[in-house]
Design a protein around this nucleic acid. Structure first.
Lengths: 193, 193
DNA sequence: GCTAAAATGTGATAATTGTCACAGTAAAAA
DNA sequence: TTTTTACTGTGACAATTATCACATTTTAGC
């Protein structure tokens, strides 16, 4: 159950067996069924979550009632509303399971406590955040490009997830309507994939 | 000269005087005149920079030759191309001074070395990155909204910088053309600010 | 497997934003 | 100051993407 996370950690830092056990002991396993929520808007997001199995989407409901997906979370990803987590303010996001999912969760206070005695653990989270950050930086750039480029970029990076996601979620992630995405897909199919 | 940074650190963590001196000794002051570059595309970004005075913009030149501003950096902000910094790959960004500026820079290897003996320093950078991350998360959300909302949001957050930035840079940051921004400004002026 | 619900495809049309051209204005350099 | 250069405003028009309506297909629950 902790193997995935253990490997993920080992890819970035070396933790002693003891430190790793201390960390794992602080994690709480969470199971979600499809459509269940990890976070609902209005709640304060006090946990960070590592996805073991399944997948989730993080989205905002705008003032017209439209859902806007800003992020997905699949196996090997940490996911949280970093803003609410950091500031303690109520979240404007929902995080919902797209499939039956399994995650490990840890709350901020516990984690901050662990950082004091296990600096390497903070190093791990720092490195992970740097990677996530680099990903968001790229996402901003892509969101400024035309819809077709955004879609092709998505396929290049997350093509393997395309069947697991609905068109409307992909469209929302790309910042377009599901109708527009449908038309883009026709175009790109005609030109050969 | 180091007062700004010293205060910035104190806002997030407590560093011993010795640790702080060790860190400051590793920083290199950099002066830039308006239009000079801190980073040019094709170079690997090996430094992180803390802005003491002045301001910079980080932008990409797209395949049509258009400049796309993804980020600004003003007093009290750390700025770098996190992707290039992290992966060691050549940057696709330029970071250019908008005004005569003063910064403090540190390279990644030196910083990683410091982290080993000064865990609190890594805590500081980790916290700063969390804040920056929360800011980018919001930026993604805003970029999905109509142009007028983006502009008003910009004014709310960075209204105090509006006179120091050119229209074309603001427009680019908002992901619209300078012509569109000009029209948005007319509209919002007619409705009273 | 059947049925209801959800998701997707597609046409007609509207809204938003971009492009191009050029005039006017402001700012930098000589 | 003067002169050049860069920046901004505005009109006409084009391109992109959204919206709405409804048909079709797929999926989930019984």
């Amino acid at each position: 159950m902790y193997d995935l996370l253990s490997n993920h950690i080992a890819r970035h830092v070396t933790l002693s067996e003891l430190d790793q056990q201390t960390f794992f002991a602080a994690l709480k396993p969470v199971k979600l069924r499809r459509h269940q929520y990890l976070l609902q808007e209005g709640m304060v997001c006090r946990h960070d979550h590592f996805v073991i199995k399944g997948g989730v989407r993080q989205y905002e409901v705008d003032n017209k009632g439209h859902e806007k997906v800003i992020h997905f979370g699949f196996q090997d990803w940490w996911i949280t509303d970093r803003y609410s987590w950091l500031t303690g303010s109520p979240s404007i996001y929902n995080i919902q399971a797209l499939e039956d999912s399994e995650l490990l969760q840890i709350d901020k206070d516990t984690l901050d406590q662990l950082f004091i005695n296990i600096p390497r653990l903070e190093r791990y989270f720092h490195i992970v955040l740097q990677h996530t950050f680099a990903y968001w930086q790229e996402r901003i750039l892509v969101l400024q490009k035309p819809a077709m480029e955004r879609y092709l970029h998505f396929r290049k990076l997350y093509g393997h997830l395309e069947q697991r996601l609905s068109q409307q979620h992909i469209a929302s992630y790309l910042g377009i309507t599901r109708e527009s995405l449908s038309r883009l897909r026709n175009q790109s199919a005609q030109r050969g994939s």
